[in-house]
Amino acid sequence: MITESPNRALALPALIIAALASLVICPFVGMEPIPVTVLSDSGAVDGALRTVFWQIRVPRTCIGFLAGAGLAACGMAFQAMFRNALATPFTLGVAGGASLGAALYVRFGLSFALLGISGVSIFAFLGALGSISLVYGLTRLRHGFSTAALLLAGIAVNLFFSSLIMLIQYTSNYAHSFRIMRWLMGGLEIMGYERVFQLMPLVGISILVLYAVTHELNLMTVGEELAISRGVDVRRTKGILFIATSICVGGIVAVCGPIGFIGLMAPHICRLLVGGGHRRLLPATCLFGGLFLIICDTLARTAIAPAEIPVGVITSVLGGPFFVWLLVRTPAGGLNIALR
């Protein structure tokens, strides 16, 4: 049997430890540092801080981890499925679709909720599902719709949606316009655990589904025809992947807004850490995505306290340069997935 380099073997345990550590530490960090004694019932910490900790910081950290893990996992699935370094649900227009849904909701002054889920989330969810269906439809349109064409279509769809959003913003009043802009930046501002419990099954089940098809993802990375000849039912696998990722990404975007970059970047970094095999890559990517987002959120909460920076801004500001550095540093082809 081939033994791998010790670095690769250590990467996953290291990520697990880092993720656990940040899950535990981040809720204590913020505008108002909270002492560890908050965990005991002794009453050493006053009630308001206790509420901040349990009703704001902890749920916010949970939702950050869920969203980061889910976005990263779906990015990984799309990169494998389309054999392309740039293919993620977001680059293929999902963020645009979700944002358009949310903008429409705000612009027309709608105000409703369904089963305790806010209308803006429902509109964003529908927008995300709509754009993933569009992508899926395009891939099914005719035999051999190339990935390059698909990416171009995704760019076109994104541009089209963002023009519509600009139009909506332009014709909105000031308050609506600001609300739309703020939504577009993404954020994890939640109170209590309702949203966490809404999102957990969506993300959890989707990741489990992805875990069930890791052998297929490996083969699809190598090539669709080879995958078929090895016995993969590619049509079925793609169908499963599209359903799982739409539900996952749709749910996350509905709750947190379009938080960019994690889906693109996390899988690439983890490929460098643990290699291209998806059995290992999927958990690594989930851990890294979750970890990255809660760290970004902690920065968002503290960097210019008492004000907050939208977390979507932080992920891109931090992630962008880091990713470019990685691209430059890594020898050609080192990102281990085709750039075509």
Binding site: H215, L219, V222, R230, R271, G275, G277, I337
Partner: peptide, 23 residues
């Protein structure tokens, strides 16, 4: 196989796909 991001051993293991079960 020039674009394949796997070790040769891992690639050959993929030939075992029809014999493997999902989890």
């Amino acid at each position: 196989t020039d674009q394949v991001p796997f070790l040769a051993y891992e690639f050959v293991m993929m030939g075992r796909y029809p014999h493997l079960s999902p989890f």
